[in-house]
């Protein structure tokens, strides 16, 4: 028997260690560990307890949606909080659900109307899909004779209605896709593609609208591409929507006099002091073209379905 004593001692030690381990495990392991899996079930509730900060469009009162959401804008998918910041305090405070804990100052939505804020989405980048509206700020400012390179976009473009289109996107004319040389050519192309044997037929405005394009070439706006006013919004690989513009706000994007423009290039006006005594109301539906058509197109071009 004496020969087995050391075995019993080792066995007793092992049993004692196991009991200590089991006791420690029972004491240290959370009570809900293993209820749902190999983890603490209460962790799910801990994560769920976090309060959402981005409320989403559903939280906006209906009156706000009606007055602020522009039905004509192309950027209808942009969430309010993308520009204005998280609205959790804002909604709770103004619905009176926050009690005294939320100060009004912290409930007012921060605004991101800086130049950079807009360029986050709209800066021209090669990696951006070509059918997404993009702008090279340097090129754009040079074109508009802007002196101050930090001028925010909202000086001209209303953030809730950036382009003041005459028609909704869904109501604008379906138009075949407008091809651009750079889609195939890596470097700028000179000359006429029609002179190149076997060159694919591409849609240029004059291919279908020869009469209008030839007439336009002799008018004051001839330095512009057609799509400067007839904005094209590509919807899929073969077609898009094209707009006819000419409403006041759209024309004023270029022609409104501003302190940060150098006054060169083309006529710039102060709407409230329109030349020749014509008062302009920004909400007046009268088109600039009613008086200034001769600077752009002939009379026949205004007819629906004109070539």
């Amino acid at each position: 028997m004496a020969n087995w004593a050391h075995v019993f001692k080792i066995f007793a030690l092992l049993v004692a260690a196991l009991l200590v381990f089991l006791a420690a495990q029972r004491m240290l392991r959370p009570a809900d560990y293993g209820k749902l899996g190999n983890y603490r079930a209460g962790a799910l509730n801990d994560l769920f307890a976090q309060a959402p900060r981005h409320e989403g469009p559903a939280s906006a009162p209906s009156a706000m949606k009606t007055s602020w959401a522009c039905t004509k804008k192309t950027s209808t998918a942009v969430n309010c909080e993308d520009c204005h910041g998280p609205a959790h305090l804002h909604v709770k405070f103004f619905l009176g659900e926050g009690g005294d804990e939320i100060a009004e100052a912290s409930a007012v939505l921060p605004r991101e109307y800086t130049l950079e804020g807009c360029l986050f989405c709209h800066r021209k980048l090669a990696a951006r899909p070509r059918n997404f509206p993009q702008v090279d700020p340097e090129e754009h400012f040079a074109f508009l004779h802007v002196n101050d390179a930090t001028t925010p976009c909202i000086e001209c473009h209303g953030p809730h209605e950036p382009l003041f289109l005459l028609t909704r996107v869904s109501e604008a004319r379906i138009h075949p896709i407008i091809q651009e040389c750079r889609q195939c050519h890596a470097t700028p192309v000179e000359g006429d593609h029609r002179a190149v044997a076997g060159h694919p037929v591409i849609f240029e405005c004059r291919d279908c609208h020869r009469k209008v394009v030839e007439d336009f070439a002799g008018r004051e706006h001839a330095f512009l591409r057609c799509t400067a006013c007839h904005l094209f919004y590509q919807e899929n690989e073969s077609a898009g929507r094209i707009f006819k513009n000419g409403n006041q706000r759209f024309c004023l994007l270029c022609h409104e006099k501003k302190d940060w423009k150098n006054g060169e290039g083309w006529p710039q006006i102060v709407p409230a002091n329109h030349p020749e005594g014509v008062e302009m109301d920004r909400d007046d539906p009268t088109l600039c073209l009613a008086c200034h058509l001769e600077n752009i197109h002939g009379e026949e071009a205004m007819e629906r379905g004109a070539p």
């Binding site: 993308d82 986050f120 980048l125």
Partner: peptide, 13 residues
């Protein structure tokens, strides 16, 4: 379009 709206929203949320 690489605007980073998702990154900013995630950070703030």
């Amino acid at each position: 379009i690489g605007c980073g709206s998702c990154v900013r929203a995630c950070k703030l949320e």
